[in-house]
């Protein structure tokens, strides 16, 4: 109340001239208040900085997490499902999903069974801008519907805007099952398999060793 009253008085210069003592007192009080105001700003700045930590951590969380950390080995089914010399579309459920993902938690990949235990597993996402490529066994080509990128049966770039071949997943054959390491959307930054993780729990050591993907290691 008093402060408001003082302000009101200060705003009316036509009132009676205040005597010297009050002016000095008011000026002293003013500089004290101005200092307190600056201090309160600094205090809020500090609180804001502290507050920014959890907010930024929350917002940037998905950006800071390593993509490879989402990856896990997913079974695509028994190898008997993949006739030798053929390339087939296989659906699987992404290893990391949430209840709200719905159908978007599904994923698909192209499995090419070369021979024996040799496979190639390609992402359906075009290496250009990510549209779903389709396999045409007659012309042995993957064609992209978006800008006409084309890839040969081994995933190598054939023509069109893509600058590289199809993304490939790491795979392994464990028992009679074909497994791939999947988990994040394949893009130029993530690729299909970010880093090769040794298969400890799932596959026996020797399987992991001789199934090292030939195309990747070349």
């Amino acid at each position: 109340m008093t402060r408001a009253h003082e302000h009101g008085a200060a705003a009316q210069p036509e009132g009676t001239a205040p005597d010297a003592a009050t002016t000095v007192a008011r000026a002293a009080a003013h500089s004290r208040r101005a200092f307190l105001f600056k201090l309160s700003l600094a205090l809020n700045g500090a609180v804001g900085a502290v507050l920014a930590v959890p907010i930024l951590g929350y917002v940037l969380g998905p950006a800071l997490k390593k993509n490879a950390s989402y990856n896990a080995w997913v079974s695509l089914g028994p190898i008997a499902d993949f006739p030798e010399g053929e390339t087939r579309l296989v659906d699987y459920r992404n290893p990391v999903t949430m209840a709200s993902d719905g159908a978007t938690g599904n994923a698909a990949c192209w499995v090419r069974h070369i021979e024996g235990r040799k496979f190639q597993v390609f992402a359906i996402n075009c290496a250009h801008l990510g549209c779903p490529v389709r396999w045409f066994p007659q012309s042995k080509l993957f064609l992209c519907p978006c800008h006409g990128g084309a890839y040969y049966e081994d995933g190598a770039r054939a023509s069109g805007p893509p600058e590289r071949g199809l993304f490939e997943y790491q795979y392994t054959v464990a028992g009679n099952h074909l497994l791939i390491e999947a988990g994040s959307l394949p893009t130029l930054a993530t690729e299909a398999c970010a880093k090769k993780k040794p298969l400890i729990q799932i596959a026996p050591q020797d399987a992991a060793a001789d199934d090292a993907n030939p195309a990747r290691s070349s």
Binding site: V59, L60, P62, A63, M98, S100, T104, G183, T187, A189
Partner: peptide, 19 residues
């Protein structure tokens, strides 16, 4: 590029957090 994709999608894939 990689972190930006994560920031945009809110996770490893296009899904619930993205929408």
């Amino acid at each position: 590029g990689g972190p930006l994709v994560g920031l945009m999608l809110g996770g490893p894939i296009i899904g619930g957090p993205t929408l």
